[in-house]
Simulated assay, not measured.
Amino acid sequence: MIFDSAKNLDFYRNLGMDGRYEKAVDFLKNTDLESLAPGKYEIDGKNVFANVTEYTTVPWEEAKYEAHHDYTDIQYMISGSETMTYARIDELAEKVPYNEEKDVVFYDNENPGLKVVVKAGEYMIFNPWDGHKPKAAAGEPAFIKKVIVKIKEN
């Protein structure tokens, strides 16, 4: 898990394999993110793509821990703020088994985890071994817009 701000994106350019992080960083730096409509944006086929989402955050207890087997998430806040929570997957109890088609497994909410308020221009990077719980309100529920860049790891 990594928490950082837009000014440091270039630091992560050379992570991973086949220049995939570089493509993700270029997308985040060179795209007018605020003007993007919700939806999926192809960057490098199934290797790197982005999902733009808009929603109202929910109380922490209603948000769900999740993890992915094949993809790393860069969850970049475009506007608003939300609480994202991190916990190692070996510290979480599986609640909904892995769905290969959607590359997601869900866990119960028993672990309080490490909570981080992520504001516009900030992001968290969650690798496949990182349980994460997005969508939680940072205080009162509020409308947010973010982009989740998915980077294939295997």
Rank of each mutant, 00 (worst) to 15 (best):
D70S: 06
K29C: 06
D44T: 08
F27Y: 06
E94M: 13
D26M: 08
A93R: 11
G131I: 00
A120C: 11
V118E: 01
K46Q: 15
K46W: 04
A63K: 04
F11V: 14
S5L: 06
A93D: 14
P128M: 02
G45A: 13
G19N: 13
D90K: 14
I43C: 07
V149W: 02
D44F: 07
D73K: 05
I125N: 05
Y76Q: 15
N99E: 15
K29T: 03
R13D: 01
T31W: 04
K145G: 05
E153D: 08
F49A: 02
R13E: 06
A93Q: 15
I89P: 04
D18N: 13
A24G: 06
V58S: 07
E34A: 13
V105P: 00
N111F: 10
T57F: 12
A87P: 08
E101T: 11
V104H: 03
V117S: 10
E82L: 12
L28K: 03
V58D: 01
V105Y: 00
L33V: 05
E61Y: 11
D90Y: 11
E91N: 14
N154Q: 13
A37T: 12
P112M: 12
G45Y: 11
A37C: 07
A137K: 10
T57G: 13
K152I: 09
M1F: 05
I144S: 02
K145T: 12
Y86W: 15
V117P: 01
D44Q: 12
T56R: 14
E100R: 11
A67K: 03
A37R: 10
T72D: 02
V58K: 14
